[in-house]
Design a protein around this nucleic acid. Structure first.
Lengths: 167, 167
DNA sequence: ATAAACTTTCAATAATTATTGAAAGTTTAA
DNA sequence: TTAAACTTTCAATAATTATTGAAAGTTTAT
């Protein structure tokens, strides 16, 4: 397999994977492209490589910046904006985990909290709803705590401990 | 908040959450409904509660059974089929983690392996692609190992150790 | 102040994904 | 074996989500 083939495969795989876990295809492909690029890319570069429109590129770059995965790079003397992505997979994992906690886990915790105000009327079905809501609440809180600890631990000692623990 | 309100909120929240991580809305809602039900439900029950068609209900129940989250329950004397879901959140987590590893992580590992056959032509861009592919490969393997260890450990000592470790 | 170089926005459209409902299929009881 | 009770399948349709492209917006150089 030569470079071009491998690049296309890498980018498209990352793209379809991304859409699987809630990031759209173009967004994931842009990130993939930047991830294996040895220099910052301009909007033109990205449009040309991925064969997508200017609007699409602009919007998805913005989203990637919102996630904190991609940053603008200003090259002196150049008018165009250039973009790079976080290159360290560990750091990338941390950023993604943090954002997903914020965007997905937090809202669930919020709703589960709201549900705790259900009035216990003594019926079995209400008891079951309360019980299961509570079980889910505990689980979600634990998961979130784990993610946050991981995320706030730059040195990543947890991962190391984990791997040792697990092997 | 009374029982009906809470039930609706629980089911619809679970539904939208589900769609966020790659399970469709109806599928997630059916699971949610079963999760808080004190007795097995028939297709009719589910259709009525969620206001969805017979076809939709049938297909999504099948998917839930494929995932191993929902099981058929035959009630003696009854012609209809009844359904229940795994009620223990820990066990539910294990099943979901396992399936997601199989469906999502394994295919990525496969592609990353294929990419390892790229020919190193000595250029910087090829070196970068190789390096980043390898980094991702290692990360993915580690993540998958963690998930599998978790999953094969019914007693769930890992979670307990983790929580201790993390606190 | 003007124009060139560039980016963003957003209504229209395309692509994808979910849902319906009725016909076909299956199982059970008599 | 027949018919009633039930489930599955799948082509048609609806709903959602992504993408385009051109107009509007912004920045920089002169």
């Amino acid at each position: 397999m030569n470079y071009e083939e491998a690049k296309i495969k890498f980018v498209s795989t990352w793209g379809s994977l991304g859409s699987l876990w809630g990031i759209n295809k173009a967004m994931a492909q842009i990130q993939a492209l930047l991830f294996i690029s040895i220099k910052p890319l301009s909007m033109e570069d990205i449009m040309a490589e991925l064969q997508i429109s200017r609007g699409n590129t602009s919007m998805n770059l913005r989203q990637l910046m919102d996630w904190g995965i991609v940053t603008k790079e200003l090259i002196p003397g150049e008018r165009k904006e250039y973009f790079t992505t976080e290159k360290d997979v560990q750091e990338l994992t941390r950023i993604i985990a943090k954002e997903r906690s914020r965007r997905e886990i937090q809202p669930v915790i919020k709703v589960l909290n709201e549900l705790s105000s259900i009035k216990d009327d003594g019926t079995d079905k209400t008891k079951e709803l309360i019980k299961q809501t509570k079980a889910l609440h505990d689980l979600t809180l634990n998961a979130d705590t784990m993610i946050n600890k991981l995320v706030n631990q730059k040195q990543n000692w947890i991962t190391k401990s984990l791997i040792k623990l697990i092997k």
